[in-house]
Every structure is written in C-alpha cells, then in structure tokens.
C-alpha cells in the first residue's frame, strides 16, 4: 500500500502528469472536452493564488473572485475599448490586479482573522457592484465584447481551442512551478509560520504586514492573470464574472483538493470541474451537493484529498523508518553540546 502510494509522490509523477496533460487533446472525444479542460486549468491558476494567501498564509480571502474579475475586465477594457495588443494588455491586467491587491492588502491585512474575512467579503462585493454600475468604464450589465485572443504572432492562432489549451497549460505549469518553489523556500516557510499564529510568527522575528501583503499581492496577481486568460478565452465578459459565488467555488476546489498543498489546487479544481461536467443535471444545483460536502470535509477531512493523502503517507513513512532502524540515541541527555549564540 505504501509502495503504491509512493508512486504519487515520486518525482517522476509530475512528468507523467504533464505528459497526460499534453496528450489530453489527442484522446479527448470532442473539442468541447478540451475547452472544459482549458477552463479548469485557468480556474486552477486562480486557485493556486488563493492557496498562497489562504492555504499557506492562513488568511481567508473572500475577495479572490473579485480580483479574478479585475484581471478579466482590465484585459477586456484595454483590448476591446482601447485597442491594445494582447500581450501588453495581459501584462497590464496582471499589474492592475497586483496593485489593487497591494492597496487592499495594506488596509485589510492589519485586521485579525474574522475582520479580514469580513472585510474581503465586502471588497469582493464592492468590485461586483462597481463592475455592475460603473457603466462608463465597464459597460455595466451589457458586458464587453470583442476581447482580443492571445496574440500568436502569426505562428499560432490562439482563438482556436487546442492552441489555447496549450497556452493555458503553459501558464498553469508556470503557476505550479512557482508555487512549488515558493512553498519549499524560506519565504513559503515564513508564510506558513504566520498560518500557525500571528503571535508566534512575530516572536520569531517575522514582519507580519510585509509578509502578509506579499502573499496577498502574489495571490491577487495569480487571480488577475487567470482572469485575463479567462477573458481572452471566452472573449465576452459581464458582471457575473465578479459574482462572489466564484470565490466560493474556488474555496470549494481548494478545500476538496487540500489547503496548503502543492497539488491540492490542481486536483480539486480539475476534479470538481469534471464531476460537475459529467453530471450535467448538477450544473445548476451542484451546491445542493457541494454545500454539505464542504461542511463534511471541513469537519472530517479539513486537509482535503491531497493533504490527507500526504499526511497519511508521511506517518506511514515515519513508522517504516522507525521499524527499520531503532535509533540508539538517548533522547534526554543531548550529550553533544554546541555553544549557542
């Protein structure tokens, strides 16, 4: 059993995963499936962002869908209304989300737990209301048409589903790569120390504000980039993109996959998107099932699928290691003493 489980954590597993993703369009039964997968990838990128602030850093951000919409609208407005080229507009969309994230973060991250969640819930709603009402900028309820597809410089046509799929996959790989590097770095450990408690983190000399704002800006940048990709894929967006329900969807994906794990966001997002797709009748009422599922998971399996699996494996490995070699060290004495400080 442990052997079998090791297959998933083997370094080669991620290359297998990548190969599967690369091959998917060739085995997919229809273009629609490829399209759905590309959508799942884009949402997964956003969920990776949510994982940074909520999973690693422990701050429940309820405005994440709002920042996704900000990225989408930034790209839409720049390319459709102002005739920008895709790539500069894409970059700008990322920067706008980052800048807005910094502004919101500086104010909101001084707040403790509940206040931060409430505050961001309201921020998400303000974004929604503004997009809905600020017609001069966002065209209100009419939405924005004619959003540019990613520019392939005449080499590839990203308005086609398959090329776009690979583009989305590319960004997803980049997102996971950076998330992985972050999580194993000192910076990621710093975020996780904050999750374990503000007071403890501070007493370890960690500058709370600085690190929280950084985590938040990273997360909103992810959201903005994902939103921009989303807009360029569907080419038409409306205020519903900012509906706070998207935030709740992303929390569901992350919870099911596993907070604070590297592959949780991917597993959760792709898994849930496909389950809802294959159960078409669920589309509108999926929350009848996912709502209670969230509650049950939070109570019985708060670390999600990936987190639970990793926790289980970690302990099995530890047990096995102990069985293999009983350490002959006397635990209490600590005889080798190195001078301190």
């Amino acid at each position: 059993m442990r052997r079998f489980a090791s297959l998933f954590t083997h370094p080669a597993a991620r290359w297998v995963l990548l190969a599967l993703a690369l091959g998917f369009p060739f085995v997919a039964s229809s273009e629609y499936q490829v399209y759905v997968m590309a959508t799942a990838f884009i949402w997964a990128i956003a969920v990776y962002g949510l994982n940074i602030i909520t999973g690693y850093c422990g701050q429940l951000n309820l405005a994440h869908g709002g920042f996704f919409a900000v990225g989408a609208y930034a790209l839409a407005i720049l390319t459709s209304d102002h005739g920008w080229n895709f790539w500069p507009a894409f970059l700008a969309a990322g920067l706008v989300s980052a800048a807005l994230g910094a502004a919101v973060g500086v104010v909101s991250l001084r707040l403790k737990e509940h206040y931060f969640a409430i505050f961001t819930l309201c921020v998400g709603f303000i974004i929604y209301l503004l997009i809905d009402k600020w017609e001069a900028l966002t065209h209100g309820a009419i939405g924005i048409r004619g959003i540019a597809a990613p520019d392939g410089f005449g080499l590839v046509d990203f308005s086609q589903t398959r090329p776009f799929y690979y583009l989305a996959l590319g960004f997803l790989v980049l997102a996971i790569w950076f998330a992985g590097r972050l999580a194993s770095s000192l910076l990621g450990r710093t975020f996780m120390a904050i999750r374990n408690g503000d007071a403890l983190a501070q007493s370890l000399g960690i500058d709370l504000m600085r690190n929280k704002v950084l985590a938040f800006v990273l997360s909103t940048t992810y959201a903005g980039v994902a939103g921009a990709l989303y807009a360029s894929m569907i080419r038409f967006i409306g205020p519903e993109e900012a509906n706070p329900n998207h935030t709740f969807d992303m929390i569901t994906y992350l919870l099911i996959g596993g907070f604070g794990t590297l592959f949780g966001p991917l597993a959760g997002t792709v898994g849930v998107v496909w389950i809802t797709q294959s159960l078409q009748f669920l589309e509108d009422y999926r929350m009848v099932i996912f709502g209670p599922l969230i509650v049950v998971l939070v109570i019985f399996m708060p670390r999600g699928v990936v987190g639970t699996f990793l926790g289980w494996k970690l302990r099995k490995d530890a047990e096995a290691a102990r069985a293999d070699a009983r350490p002959g060290v006397d635990g209490m004495s600590g005889t080798e003493v190195k001078p301190h400080a």
């Binding site: 910076l187 450990r189 710093t190 403890l200 370890l204 960690i206 670390r303 970690l314």
Partner: peptide
C-alpha cells in the same frame, strides 16, 4: 501552547526559526 505544524516533521517546523537572520525575498525565490 506553541502551535506547531502537526503534519510536518520536527525539523521542518524549526527551519523558519532562523528566518529572521536571513534576507532572501521574492526575487531570490524566483
């Protein structure tokens, strides 16, 4: 009560302890 990260190894929990004497930031991670 010190909240440790229960699902990580002892050493993993301790590495961040020396963070305050280091200076690496986002760019170093990138």
């Amino acid at each position: 009560t010190t909240h440790l990260f229960e699902q990580a190894t002892v050493l993993d929990n301790l590495i961040v302890g020396h963070r305050l004497r280091t200076r690496s930031g986002l760019w170093d991670v990138l």
